[in-house]
C-alpha cells in the first residue's frame, strides 16, 4: 500500500511532470535541428524547447545566466565551443551508456559526446579547374601561384580556426606560420560565411574554396526540408540545379581533411538531466544519425549508418581524416595570436 502511494507520488510529483520537458541551447541552425526534435517528441512525449543562436552567443548567455540557466543541454556546432564549455566546467558527467555509443571523438572527461562529423575540404569549380592539378596535401596549396586571387577562405570562421589549431599541433608552429604566409601571398578572398563563398565559387568568381564538405552537398543536393519520416530512404534526392561544385579530398591523413565534430553535453545546472540524456541517446541512435547523414550530409559518429553514395561511407571519411589530439582545439588563443600576427584575423 505504502509502496503504491509512493509510486503515485513519484509519478505525479513536479519533478516527474517536469521531466516531460527539456530545454536545449544550440548553435546549430533550426533547419538542422527541428526535424530531429519533432521525431524525438513524437517518440517519447517529451516536449523540447530550443533556443537557437550561435555557439558564441549561447556561451555568453550561459555565462550571464549562471546557476539560473533554464538550459538542460548545450548542443554546439564546433569542437572549439564544446571544449570551451568543458573548460568553464559547464558540463556534467555523462553515463557510460551514452558515452559508449560514438565510435570516436569521445573526450577523456566524458562530459560531452560528438553527434556528427564534418570534414574540412577543398571545393573547386569543375568547369574551370582540372582536379588533376590540385595537390595531394593542403600544405602544397600555396604553390598554386596560378590561382592568385582566386582562392576563397574564411579566416574568421570557427572551422577554419580549428583547422589552423590542428595544423599547429600536428606540424608545429613554424609550419602553420609558413602555410598561412604562403596562402596570404596568393591574395585569397576572405569571406565571413561559407554559403556566400560557395555561391561565388559556383558563379566562377573564384576557382577554389577551403570549406566544410557539407556546405557543398547542401548547395548541390538540398537541405533537410520537410518532415523527417525516419525511414531508411533508399533513393537519394537528385541533384537540383546544376551547380558546378566539386570536392577535392587530399591524401589520407592530410591535415586538409581534418574531421570536426559537433556535439552536446548536459549542463550541470540542468533541471531535467534525465530527459536531456534521453535526447542525447536519441541523437546517437541510428535513426537520428541516418537523418544527419542523408539530409544534412554530415557523417555519422556511430557505426553502421548508411550515407548517400556521393558522400562515401563514414569509414572512408575517417581514414581520410588525420588523427588529431583533442587538446589541439583547446588552444584557440594561440591560433588567434598566429592569425593576428599575419593580419588575417
Amino acid at each position: 500500500m505504502v509502496r503504491i502511494l509512493l509510486l503515485l507520488l513519484l509519478t505525479f510529483s513536479p519533478a516527474a511532470l517536469a521531466a516531460r520537458e527539456v530545454v536545449v541551447y544550440t548553435g546549430r541552425s533550426k533547419a538542422l535541428v527541428e526535424p530531429l526534435i519533432q521525431r524525438f517528441t513524437a517518440e517519447t512525449g517529451i516536449r523540447v524547447r530550443v533556443r537557437y543562436g550561435r555557439d558564441a552567443q549561447l556561451l555568453a548567455l550561459l555565462k550571464a545566466e549562471g546557476g539560473r540557466s533554464p538550459a538542460d543541454l548545450f548542443w554546439a556546432n564546433a569542437p572549439g565551443a564544446l571544449l570551451l564549455a568543458e573548460r568553464r566546467g559547464l558540463f556534467a558527467q555523462l553515463p557510460k551508456k551514452v558515452l559508449a555509443r560514438p565510435s570516436a571523438f569521445v573526450p577523456e572527461k566524458g562530459d560531452f559526446v560528438p553527434l556528427t562529423l564534418r570534414l574540412r575540404t577543398l571545393a573547386y569549380n569543375p568547369q574551370r579547374v582540372d582536379p588533376g592539378i590540385l595537390p595531394r596535401s593542403i600544405l602544397d596549396l600555396p604553390r598554386l601561384a596560378a590561382f592568385r586571387g582566386r582562392i576563397g577562405w574564411t579566416p574568421g570562421y570557427s572551422s577554419f580556426q580549428d583547422f589552423v589549431s590542428a595544423l599547429r599541433a600536428e606540424r608545429g608552429e613554424a609550419a602553420a606560420y609558413d602555410w598561412l604566409r604562403g596562402m596570404k601571398a596568393l591574395a585569397p578572398r576572405a569571406y565571413t560565411g561559407n554559403v556566400a563563398m560557395l555561391l561565388d565559387l559556383a558563379s566562377g568568381r573564384i576557382d577554389l574554396a577551403l570549406t566544410n564538405h557539407y556546405y557543398v552537398y547542401q548547395l548541390k543536393y538540398g537541405g533537410p526540408e520537410g518532415d523527417f519520416e525516419g525511414e531508411d530512404e533508399e533513393e537519394e534526392s537528385p541533384p537540383r540545379g546544376e551547380l558546378p561544385l566539386a570536392l577535392h579530398p587530399f591524401a589520407p591523413g592530410d591535415p586538409g581533411n581534418l574531421a570536426l565534430f559537433t556535439g552536446a553535453g548536459v549542463l550541470k545546472t540542468a533541471r531535467h538531466p534525465d530527459a536531456a540524456q534521453r535526447l542525447l541517446a536519441f541523437l546517437l541512435a541510428p535513426e537520428a544519425q541516418r537523418f544527419a547523414a542523408q539530409r544534412i550530409h554530415e557523417y555519422p559518429v556511430v557505426a553502421g549508418v548508411r550515407t548517400p553514395a556521393y558522400m562515401g561511407p563514414a569509414s572512408r571519411a575517417l581514414t581520410l581524416a588525420p588523427r588529431v589530439n583533442f587538446a589541439a582545439f583547446g588552444d584557440l588563443e594561440g591560433t588567434l595570436r598566429l592569425l593576428r600576427s599575419l593580419d588575417l584575423f
Binding site: 550561435r54 558564441a56 572549439g80 574568421g156 570562421y157 588563443e333 588567434l336 584575423f345
Partner: peptide
Amino acid sequence: RYPTYSYAIYRELAGAY
C-alpha cells in the same frame, strides 16, 4: 565582402568567444 567595424566585433565574439 566589405568588412566594416562591426566585423571586428563579430570576429571577437563569434570567432574568439
